[in-house]
């Protein structure tokens, strides 16, 4: 809106960030900036999200946190330095179980198999009210729905440009992010994000998720003696039974939010 330099914070769900496997670079050397580019057309280096703080572990100068939104988890890692002591203070003010707002910069690492993970380095961490979490959830769903409409426009019209999308009521920011994302995620099934955007307004778990809950909890429990089961294994197992990824995500989130499971390591779950 203004001629400002501040990097905007993107309000996106964890599942959109989790499916992100591409970045866009700008500048060179010390001025190089790397932006995440999500399948939902969000592009940035900073995110803002709300959710339930499920785990907080400290190891020397490092604090790791996982925060659950209605679609999955954000992974937050904080390294205490001289210049960010105010953030450390904010982190010490929140506990597992609190509903929190976090704004942070993103950093990326890629596995040898080419899978990309996004970590968040927090700049602001604070406890917020449940109304605030609901506000964030609904606004984020709204923003996602707008971008999905823009993606549909872009997919239906290969000649779509920033100008043509702006002419249809999208902002320049939305249009450029969506067009950029379509260069990378042409084959991505946008239906999944659409389901999230349409259903996430409801604070209660869906009927499908509630039916699956006991089965998923039982499946995870089976692997407790082995130190837990990976997220991908859970997906594979329940996909075979005909469940959708979004239902499985929701169940994991519900179990996590209820404290029935916890994350032993990144994307590996065990019964509590």
């Amino acid at each position: 809106m203004n001629d400002r330099k501040r990097e905007p914070a993107r309000w996106i769900f964890s599942s959109e960030l989790r499916d992100c496997n591409s970045t866009v670079s700008e500048g060179e050397g010390d001025f190089r900036k790397e932006f995440f580019l999500t399948p939902g057309g969000s592009m940035g280096r900073r995110v803002l999200f709300c959710g339930k703080l499920n785990a907080k572990t400290e190891d020397g100068d490092m604090t790791k946190m996982t925060v659950a939104d209605p679609t999955g988890a954000f992974y937050v890692t904080f390294f205490s330095k001289d210049f960010n002591q105010h953030v450390k203070e904010e982190i010490s003010g929140v506990q597992a179980g609190d509903e929190v707002l976090i704004m942070g910069r993103t950093s990326y690492f890629r596995t040898d198999e080419g899978k990309m993970y996004v970590n968040i380095n927090p700049e602001t961490v604070r406890k917020v009210s449940s109304e605030s979490v609901d506000y964030w959830t609904r606004r984020t769903a709204f923003l996602l729905r707008r971008r999905i409409l823009a993606i549909r426009e872009a997919r239906n019209n290969p000649e779509a440009s920033i100008e043509s999308l702006v002419g249809k009521g999208f902002t320049e920011d939305e249009a450029s992010g969506v067009l950029e994302s379509q260069k990378v995620y042409q084959a991505y099934d946008i239906q999944k994000l659409e389901e999230i955007a349409m259903t996430v307004n409801s604070a209660r778990p869906s009927e499908n998720a509630m039916k699956l809950k006991d089965d998923v909890a039982g499946y995870i429990r089976k692997f407790d003696p082995l130190g837990g089961v990976s997220y991908n294994d859970i997906l594979t197992e329940f996909r075979k039974k005909g469940s959708s990824d979004s239902d499985i995500d929701e169940v994991i989130n519900v179990l996590w939010g209820d404290g029935e499971i916890f994350e032993v390591e990144k994307r590996k779950f065990k019964s509590a």
């Binding site: 203004n2 400002r4 917020v128 009210s129 109304e131 605030s132 964030w136």
Partner: peptide, 18 residues
């Protein structure tokens, strides 16, 4: 800092923008 807010007010243009 700890809640979503709604604000009413007047917007003006200054050297920094709006």
């Amino acid at each position: 800092m700890h809640s979503a807010l709604y604000l009413r007010g007047n917007v003006r243009q200054n050297t920094q923008g709006l």
